[in-house]
Computed example of a mutant assay.
Amino acid sequence: MIIKGFSFAAVAAGIKYPDRLDLGLIFSDEPAVTAGVFTTTQVKAAPVLIDMERLRQGRSQAVLVNSGCANACTGREGMNNALETGRLLAEQLGIEQDMVLLSSTGVIGAQLNMPAFRSNLKPLVEALSPDGFEAVARAIMTTDTVPKTVFRREMIGGREVGFMGMAKGSGMIMPNMATMLAFVVTDARISYSELSRALKSGVQESFNRITVDGDTSTNDMVLVLANGTADNDWIDDTATPAYETFQNVLEEILKDLALQVVQDGEGATKCITIRVCGAKENGHAEIMARTVANSNLVKTAFFGEDANWGRIIAAMGRSGVRFNQDQVDIAFGDVVLVRNGLGLGPEVEAEAAKILREKRFTVCIDLKDGNGCEEIHTCDFSIDYVKINADYRS
């Protein structure tokens, strides 16, 4: 799929490892309306701080992204290095420096390999192509095992509008804003306030509903660039069918990418949805679902295919949400194994264990205390998760 006015490139710059794509570029021929959502942690990487400032103008023309080094907790030197990479790229592209957004992922605390950037930015720009999207998706991978992409076309305002999305993330995933990195480009013609609102709403229902390990990255960001080449009528009012369609499509894309992140969680063998219903309010349901989804004991039981519902109700009990344990129902898929707080016996647990052998399944928890209902998407904890993170810096 190609979107007019956007081009992409990736090169193996040797930022950390040789012969591996690790430097990517997204470029819009003309300045694109751009919205972003960033990590909520107090510890923010240099590129995040720079982008948050530059996106006050609501426009950008290029995104330079690298893997192999997060450029986080690197002090003034790290900030200067990030600014220099943006300045050098702007010179190669012939655009203003503040139209370049920066993104990095990798090990925290290490300085950027500046010789690798200086010697590879020109070849990177020369490699720009309308069909280089997949290469960039590979360049941003770290512990990911597969690239994560989504492509969509949708009729909006009488015009066909294209969307292309990519994400990276496998560990350090419970962002409460985004995933480690995600980028969406579209040819929609939309104003900044509407784009920003659609992005924030979409993130809330997608990336803010996933967890791999309960950790938040210093570099999380989601960027959406809209260059307007579809020539649809301007989407500049949220109370229109065009905005509603745009928002729905963007949310579907972000949710698709978010679920791909969970499915590719470090060492993961299963993708699980924790659904809590019957809570007094939605916020209570989300808190409880997130607590269960982040429980190491629950996640290891999923890996072991053990229908140990006791670990689930124990996690519920420490969530801070008040409920009556004597009216709780718990089901794995379509198998109810707890009714009114009591297990239904070994035979039912054996049937529930069959559900745990599937690659994707849903755990349904009913509190029978209200209309609140929310979902959190998670994965299991395997032996490989420990192995991957025990020597991540090597």
Rank of each mutant, 00 (worst) to 15 (best):
189 R>H: 14
160 E>H: 00
56 R>G: 08
337 L>C: 15
279 A>G: 12
244 E>V: 12
136 V>L: 07
117 F>A: 01
150 V>G: 02
246 F>H: 02
357 R>T: 14
208 N>G: 01
91 E>D: 12
199 L>H: 10
82 A>D: 03
125 V>T: 14
248 N>P: 03
292 V>H: 04
58 G>E: 07
200 K>H: 13
88 L>Q: 03
234 W>Q: 05
193 S>A: 14
359 K>C: 04
375 E>P: 00
96 E>C: 10
200 K>D: 11
110 A>S: 10
272 I>Q: 00
252 E>K: 15
246 F>S: 04
216 T>H: 00
65 V>C: 05
185 V>P: 06
149 T>R: 09
236 D>K: 13
378 T>H: 02
30 E>G: 01
265 G>Q: 07
275 R>W: 03
354 K>A: 12
372 G>H: 05
362 T>A: 07
61 Q>M: 01
340 N>F: 03
340 N>I: 05
19 D>T: 05
114 M>V: 09
339 R>F: 01
112 L>T: 00
261 V>Q: 02
19 D>K: 12
378 T>W: 01
380 D>T: 07
73 C>P: 01
281 E>V: 04
323 F>V: 06
59 R>P: 03
265 G>F: 04
341 G>S: 09
32 A>N: 07
2 I>A: 00
254 L>F: 07
188 A>M: 05
113 N>D: 13
284 H>L: 13
64 L>H: 01
4 K>R: 11
35 A>T: 11
270 K>P: 13
58 G>I: 10
238 T>C: 07
62 A>L: 08
125 V>A: 10
113 N>M: 06
155 M>S: 12
26 I>V: 15
386 V>G: 07
163 F>W: 13
253 I>V: 14
16 K>E: 09
363 V>S: 11
134 E>L: 13
170 S>N: 11
370 G>W: 06
191 S>L: 08
345 G>A: 12
165 G>Y: 06
146 V>S: 05
240 T>P: 12
285 A>T: 08
308 N>P: 02
47 P>M: 00
147 P>N: 12
65 V>Y: 02
30 E>Q: 15
361 F>H: 14
156 I>W: 06
295 S>R: 03
82 A>T: 09
354 K>R: 15
164 M>G: 00
163 F>E: 06
191 S>A: 13
225 L>A: 08
26 I>N: 00
346 P>N: 08
58 G>F: 11
107 V>E: 13
124 L>E: 09
382 S>E: 12
276 V>W: 02
157 G>A: 00
315 A>D: 08
212 V>D: 03
66 N>A: 04
162 G>N: 03
84 E>V: 08
367 L>F: 04
310 G>E: 11
327 Q>P: 03
358 E>A: 11
46 A>F: 06
23 L>A: 08
27 F>L: 05
68 G>Q: 11
